[in-house]
């Protein structure tokens, strides 16, 4: 992903980075344009000396659009170079995707089974995902770490952690 040293003038980038730059810029332009459009629903200010609630979002979104256009122009102008970073591969991205999904599942489960149960399962699953496959140590570590976190937050710091609707 890094821009390699080049002989005088613009730096090059691998094709994957160029595609990512273009996609991100287009998505952000769409987001900024949507933000500007939705400021049309904002009420006019009641104070004569105020600029109103829409002014700052419009300024920020407009500058964001200009910057994204500059990024698109720069990306289209820069030469394509070979990617010198090791490829992540499908297995690598699958690992990340599973980690993200596990976090989302933990968040969803916490509402029903509470913090303790959801976190124990979540931690054990993540350890398994990261190659720690011990059937004994995975649950033991997960339970101990969850218990320490639970005690620290719930008892010592008086932060009420979710009990879960199934146990309420």
């Amino acid at each position: 992903m890094s821009n390699a040293p080049v002989q005088g003038g613009g730096a090059g980038a691998p094709l994957s980075t160029k595609i990512a730059n273009l996609v991100i810029a287009v998505v952000l332009i769409a987001v900024a344009a949507a933000a500007i459009a939705s400021t049309g629903d904002f009420p006019k200010t009641m104070l004569a000396a105020d600029v109103g609630p829409a002014r700052f979002p419009i300024i920020h979104a407009s500058v964001l659009i200009v910057l994204c256009l500059i990024l698109i122009a720069n990306t289209l102008r820069m030469p394509t170079i070979a990617d010198d970073t090791p490829p992540v591969g499908v297995a690598g991205y699958a690992g990340v995707a599973l980690g993200i999904l596990a976090t989302a599942a933990c968040l969803y489960a916490m509402e029903y089974v509470g913090y303790a149960v959801a976190t124990v399962v979540y931690m054990a699953a993540l350890m398994w995902l990261m190659g720690q496959r011990s059937p004994l140590w995975n649950p033991v570590i997960a339970v101990v770490v969850t218990a320490v976190i639970y005690f620290t937050f719930q008892s010592a710091l008086q932060v009420p952690l979710p009990v879960g609707s199934l146990f309420e």
Partner: peptide, 18 residues
């Protein structure tokens, strides 16, 4: 890291909730 990363994520979750 196979233990540390899950601990970090568990801390992120509980810290954010707090």
């Amino acid at each position: 890291k196979s233990v540390l990363t899950p601990v970090i994520l568990a801390l992120c979750v509980v810290g954010t909730y707090a």
